[in-house]
């Protein structure tokens, strides 16, 4: 039972948290509001509350966006990134999922050692090995190719571990029943294991998406051609161009930020679950 007092406390808490979150949202709101303004309007008033209010949405409020989208390849960069993310989500789920499944359910020599090694790899930061990745990709002649960008991004020890934790608790008898139903191991993985573990698949997908979307260092090393750039690199290229106005810069940043905000608001449950990574409960 929720008592009246609890109800009141909930209200107070909600209001406090709303105010706190508003505080964190200020930069975002400022960015959004000013992305609709011409530069003159932005610089006219930067330190009153008015700076946080979007202009009247008259005919020209999308000016910055339209200019950016027509004068630059930004749409292309966004599409590139979406494509990379999609490919990496699929490959990441398959590869890391299979690895996690093997570590959870298949008996092979030194299984526990392998798991240990993979867990240890989780503490190696990407930045420390990125030169090695770069050298290997360069040696393979894959610089400035999609493949060169994607290959080193597929395997992710954290995701393997996440999958493993969830798969460990899948019941063995379902696999046995499936065997009697003539469902082979690979078919079992794709048609049973993944659908039974929807929430970890969602978690890994969301993480992969955010990872790809926010990544700057690796794509900046691999990609040199304008056609393949990811959104973040494209963003940098556009904003560092002298012809780009402040309002246009804010419009580009807004467009890069929006998918992240959407993802966070729709999948916050998965993200929290992934961070806690208990992985033991699965509906």
């Amino acid at each position: 039972m929720v008592t009246r007092k609890q109800k009141r406390n909930n209200w107070i808490l909600t209001i406090v948290l709303l105010i706190a979150s508003l505080f964190f949202l200020f930069p975002v709101i400022w960015m959004l509001a000013n992305s609709f303004k011409p530069d003159a309007a932005i610089t006219a008033d930067m330190n009153s509350l008015r700076a946080f209010v979007p202009p009247i949405l008259n005919g020209s409020f999308l000016e910055n966006y339209i200019t950016v989208l027509t004068n630059t390849n930004f749409i292309r960069y966004m599409c590139n990134t979406l494509f990379y993310a999609a490919v990496l989500i699929v490959l990441g789920v398959v590869v890391n999922g299979l690895a996690g499944y093997a570590l959870a359910k298949i008996k092979f020599p030194f299984r526990e050692r392998w798991l240990m090694i993979i867990m240890l790899l989780m503490i190696v930061p990407m930045e420390t090995i990125i030169t090695i990745h770069f050298l290997i990709v360069a040696k393979l002649g894959l610089l400035n190719t999609v493949l060169g960008y994607i290959l080193p991004m597929i395997v992710n020890p954290f995701n393997i571990f996440l999958f493993r934790q969830v798969f460990v608790s899948l019941p063995d008898d379902v696999y046995e029943a499936a065997q009697l139903d003539r469902c082979g191991p690979l078919k079992y993985f794709f048609t049973m294991v993944l659908p039974m573990s929807k929430s970890v698949v969602a978690t890994v997908s969301v993480f992969t998406f955010l990872n790809v979307w926010n990544d700057y260092l690796w794509p900046s090393l691999v990609f040199t051609s304008g056609d393949l750039l990811s959104a973040q690199i494209g963003l940098n290229a556009i904003t560092s161009n002298d012809n780009t106005t402040t309002g246009q810069t804010l419009a580009v940043i807004t467009m890069v930020t929006i998918p992240v905000i959407i993802i966070y608001s729709f999948f916050s449950k998965q993200i929290v679950e992934g961070v806690i990574s208990t992985g033991s409960k699965e509906g």
Binding site: P171, A177, L180, P195, K198
Partner: peptide
């Protein structure tokens, strides 16, 4: 022989249904 080729069906204690 593989389980599927032994001509058997099995009923498990915990049902082992495909949950999805």
């Amino acid at each position: 022989t593989a389980p599927a080729d032994r001509g058997i069906s099995m009923v498990f204690q915990n049902y082992a249904l495909y949950p999805h």
